[in-house]
Computed example of a mutant assay.
Amino acid sequence: MKKIIIIALVVLSVVSCQQSQKIGFVDNSVLINDYQEKKDIEAKLKTKIAAYEKKRDSLSQAFQLEIKDAELKARKMSQANLQKLQQEFQQKEQIISQQLQFEQQQIAQESQSKNDSLIKKVRAFVKDYGKTNGYSFILGSNEAGSVMYGTETSDLTQTVLDALNEAYKNKK
């Protein structure tokens, strides 16, 4: 009788210690790339890039026209004036180049900053989603193979993406 009670206690303690853990995973690239806020950010950046490219092209065309005009005038100039004109054009070209490079760096920094912020936001959302829905773990799948296999029922990518997009839409 004592043995049965001891065995029953051991079985009960083992069973009570073994809590089932709810585990799921998301495909990181799908989650980020299909997130509507990321698409909106990309659209805004594409607009800025297009404006930058238009400005770059118009500055380049205007500069080329100035060079052609100067080439015509250069035929009638003395050697000293010609060298002075060449220096002026080199300085002007350098200034334009620096200005365009600065604007390009600004766009790149803005893009990096927004992407970093977006990733932090998605991670926080997944963490809250996991807590709210009783998950012990939500793993991230990527090309490097952090999740090599998972059943379809454990794949939370679309569910989390839908919830994430819904939260973004409600925030707008």
Rank of each mutant, 00 (worst) to 15 (best):
L31S: 01
A108F: 08
E143K: 07
Q19V: 12
A163L: 04
K39F: 06
F137W: 10
L59W: 11
Y35P: 02
D155M: 00
K76I: 08
G150Q: 00
T132F: 00
K55Q: 14
D155K: 02
K39L: 09
V10P: 06
Q112W: 04
K76S: 14
Y149P: 01
Q112G: 11
G140T: 10
A43Y: 03
I6F: 08
Q19W: 06
D40G: 03
R75V: 11
L85W: 00
F137I: 08
Q158D: 07
T47E: 15
K54A: 14
T157D: 00
I67F: 05
K46G: 13
L156Q: 09
L31W: 00
N81C: 06
T159C: 01
I67G: 03
I5K: 05
A8G: 09
Q101D: 13
S117V: 06
Q158W: 09
K73I: 10
V10C: 12
L72H: 10
S117I: 07
Y129N: 10
A74D: 13
Q104M: 02
V26N: 00
K54T: 12
Q19N: 09
Q86W: 05
I4H: 05
K92A: 09
N115E: 15
R75G: 11
K92C: 13
I4L: 05
I5W: 02
E42C: 00
A43R: 07
L45W: 02
F89H: 13
L45E: 14
L118W: 02
D69Q: 13
V10T: 09
S141W: 01
V11Q: 07
A108Q: 15
N115D: 15
S154C: 07
